[in-house]
């Protein structure tokens, strides 16, 4: 059986069993390795992507249940043309090992889409599901504030 997927604006036909999680479709089938595997049970947030603009754990969404266009970190911006939030990540020099940061950025981007000016408590609440073993939380929080500022200034 084949499933239709729209990822970062590109259509794909994917011939895999319907229960294969979106994470492993993105990584192994489509070669979009920016989305990371951390736990496989929705406990760490490393695989966060957007479906219909909403942050979802790609390891918890079966291929057959993907009900809208998917955006991954690669669709947010590129090294040549990073998105505002990625520029904020650069300005705050957020990443250490970097493995969780795709998920952190996708989660933060979805927060900012809903709430363009979050306070610390709202940021902490929205980001609590995204684990970082390097402990970059302070820089992530600063980068989200910086991204909000950049977005306000257009």
């Amino acid at each position: 059986m084949s499933f239709f997927l729209s990822v970062n604006g590109t259509p794909h036909d994917v011939a895999l069993p319907e229960e294969v999680p979106l994470l492993w479709v993105l990584r192994d089938e489509l070669g979009l390795t920016g989305t990371k595997y951390g736990c496989g049970i929705g406990a760490c947030g490393a695989c966060t992507v957007h479906i219909n603009g909403e942050a979802r754990r790609a390891c918890q969404v079966a291929l057959g249940d993907v009900d809208g266009p998917v955006t991954t970190i690669e669709g947010l911006g590129t090294p040549e043309n990073p998105a505002i939030i990625q520029r904020a990540w650069l300005a705050s020099q957020v990443p250490q090992c970097g493995y969780c940061q795709s998920g952190q950025i996708m989660q933060a981007a979805s927060l900012l889409a809903r709430n363009p000016n979050p306070d610390d408590a709202e940021i902490d609440d929205a980001m609590a599901g995204n684990l970082c073993r390097c402990g970059t939380y302070k820089q992530i929080r600063a980068a989200i504030h910086e991204a909000a500022r950049l977005m306000r200034e257009g």
Binding site: G31, T33, P79, Q93, P95, G98, S102
Partner: peptide, 21 residues
Amino acid sequence: TPRADTLAKSTGTARFGADMR
């Protein structure tokens, strides 16, 4: 001084072992 790996790690383009193809 800014780190050399920040841009790659902020755009999902940094290659980890798990990303090998």
